[in-house]
């Protein structure tokens, strides 16, 4: 469903060339739930943006649902749902319902299907109370639920989430996690999420991809991740070790 093959992206910052992502290869099969970890500035967001077609890779290939997102951006956009935790993709000044209506048109969703999906999402995400409120007046938790609903109205094959739980309180986080697990298991939607919250990873992800300095630093199941540091019992300690360079050198990457 998702495939990166030696993908790289460089940025020119004044005179210097910065490698945000280099030689990154991994793939995600249909129905998987993959968490993408990495320290700040590691290249997670750049990777996500290349997968959505927002950024064009400067080297290597990126495939989303078999298509090149940079060249076939709008076709790819129809098949994926994207949520950025840091900023909403909804229309800031419009009521939530208007945003959904716009999505229905933009994604060309059949009216009947739209109604039934919206009813279902309204119930599972508990949106009923603020459907007619302008997005700018929503709380962060409400807004995130609205964003999730908007990303799923067109029933995408893949859901891409960039830090979906950032800034949320414990209860809201738990609600979002429950919802994401159901989307993955009940609908079979492939989910790729980036996060700094390791509880997200423990509760949701069967597989972890760790990016550091733009390169793949680990790719494997949660158990394999824990096994990289025998004797450490908490995932936090394991990941800290990996981030601070206590792990194996980049050449020796564990693969599935």
């Amino acid at each position: 469903m998702i495939r990166l093959d030696r993908a790289g992206r460089t940025f020119k910052v004044r005179r210097n060339v910065v490698h945000a992502v280099r030689d990154l290869s991994f793939s995600v099969a249909a129905g998987e739930f993959v968490g993408c970890l990495g320290p700040n500035g590691a290249g997670k967001s750049t990777t996500i943006k290349m997968l959505c077609g927002i950024l064009t890779p400067t080297s290597g290939t990126v495939r989303m649902a078999g298509l090149d997102p940079a060249r076939r951006r709008t076709t790819v956009a129809r098949r994926i749902g994207v949520v950025f935790g840091q900023r909403t993709t909804l229309w800031w000044d419009l009521p939530l319902l208007d945003s959904f209506e716009l999505c229905r048109h933009l994604y060309k969703v059949d009216r009947g299907l739209f109604r039934s999906r919206l009813d279902e999402l309204t119930e599972t995400l508990d949106l009923g109370a603020f459907l007619r409120t302008p997005v700018r007046q929503l709380s962060l938790g409400q807004r995130m639920r609205g964003d999730l609903a908007a990303a799923l109205l067109h029933a995408p094959d893949v859901l891409v989430l960039d830090e979906p739980t950032i800034g949320l309180d414990v209860v809201s986080k738990a609600g979002i996690r429950d919802f994401l697990r159901r989307v993955n298991t009940e609908r079979g939607t492939t989910v790729l999420l980036t996060t700094h919250d390791l509880v997200d990873v423990e509760r949701l992800c069967r597989r972890v991809v760790l990016i550091d300095h733009g390169r793949l630093a680990f790719d494997g199941s949660l158990e394999q991740l824990m096994a990289t540091a025998p004797g450490q019992s908490s995932i936090e300690d394991v990941v800290t070790r990996l981030y601070t360079g206590g792990a194996r050198p980049p050449g020796d990457v564990a693969r599935q």
Binding site: K49, T74, I80, T88, L106
Partner: peptide, 9 residues
């Protein structure tokens, strides 16, 4: 970014 995740130009 928001404009680029939608299936229209």
């Amino acid at each position: 970014d928001t404009f680029l995740i939608r299936p229209i130009g």
